[in-house]
């Protein structure tokens, strides 16, 4: 565990809290893409199936392979799953009337199908768990596309929404640094699938980061895109 990895995870965690706080404080999920949030629930569900493995080890009192890192990962995975499901739940129940569904027009099959095909072709091992893990990595990389499309459609984002997007985009950028660090310091550490997907994921936020920093520098509350 290095400083980049822990910062990335905490930033990721912060993104959930910012979004939930925004939705609770303003009683609105305006400007937030339900489709992107739904994709994140799918991403975490497919990626964290190994939680059952950890659970299995715990209920059989097989603690030999449970390390501090396992406990940390397990704790965070449960938090990420709970937070993302809670967000989707809020957007479909009490905040449904404020949801930007009419402008959230991205066709999810356009990312789901290619990610599924890529996961079946490019994976480290042809097993169900490994393919689902790989699918989740590919899907996470592009899951922000409905949100970016909604942002372009709307032309601006309120302060909390833009902080949320900065946190969720920034976390993967920090993972890139973490991977470079691990590659340099750990023997045999290599994971091309995650690296390429992580790079694509960060690159998709490129324009957003630019406008976010323009907003921060100018002291504006709302992020505005050029018309």
């Amino acid at each position: 565990m290095n400083i980049f990895r822990i910062s990335a995870d905490l930033l990721h965690l912060a993104s959930f809290f910012i979004l939930i706080f925004k939705m609770k404080a303003t009683k609105s999920c305006k400007g937030i893409s339900f489709k992107t949030q739904l994709m994140y629930t799918l991403v975490f569900t497919c990626r964290y199936l190994d939680l059952f493995h950890v659970l299995g080890m715990m209920i059989t009192f097989n603690f030999a392979h449970i390390t501090g890192l396992t406990l940390y990962n397990t704790f965070m995975k449960i938090l990420f799953l709970a937070a993302s499901y809670y967000i989707v739940y809020l957007m479909r129940t009490e905040l449904k009337s404020t949801s930007d569904d009419a402008r959230d027009t991205f066709v999810l099959w356009h990312i789901l199908a290619p990610c599924a095909v890529l996961a079946l072709i490019f994976n480290a091992q042809f097993t169900i768990l490994e393919i689902l893990w790989t699918f989740s990595i590919y899907l996470e990389a592009v899951a922000v596309m409905p949100q970016l499309m909604l942002l372009i459609e709307t032309g601006e984002a309120d302060s909390l929404s833009s902080h949320y997007m900065f946190a969720v985009g920034g976390y993967r950028a920090l993972y890139l640094v973490n991977w470079v660090y691990r590659y340099a310091t750990e023997p045999y550490y290599s994971n091309w699938i995650a690296w390429i997907a992580g790079f694509v994921q960060t690159a998709l936020f490129g324009d957003f980061f630019y406008y976010y920093f323009v907003k921060i520098m100018s002291g504006d509350a709302a992020l505005k895109l050029p018309t």
């Binding site: 990895r5 995870d9 990721h12 190994d50 890192l69 990962n73 965070m76 995975k77 990420f80 480290a124 091992q125 490994e130 893990w133 993972y175 973490n178 550490y189 290599s190 994971n191 699938i193 995650a194």
Partner: peptide, 10 residues
């Protein structure tokens, strides 16, 4: 193992 790389991350 190949499958373990990256699986210790979130």
């Amino acid at each position: 193992a190949a499958t373990e790389a990256g699986h210790d991350e979130l």
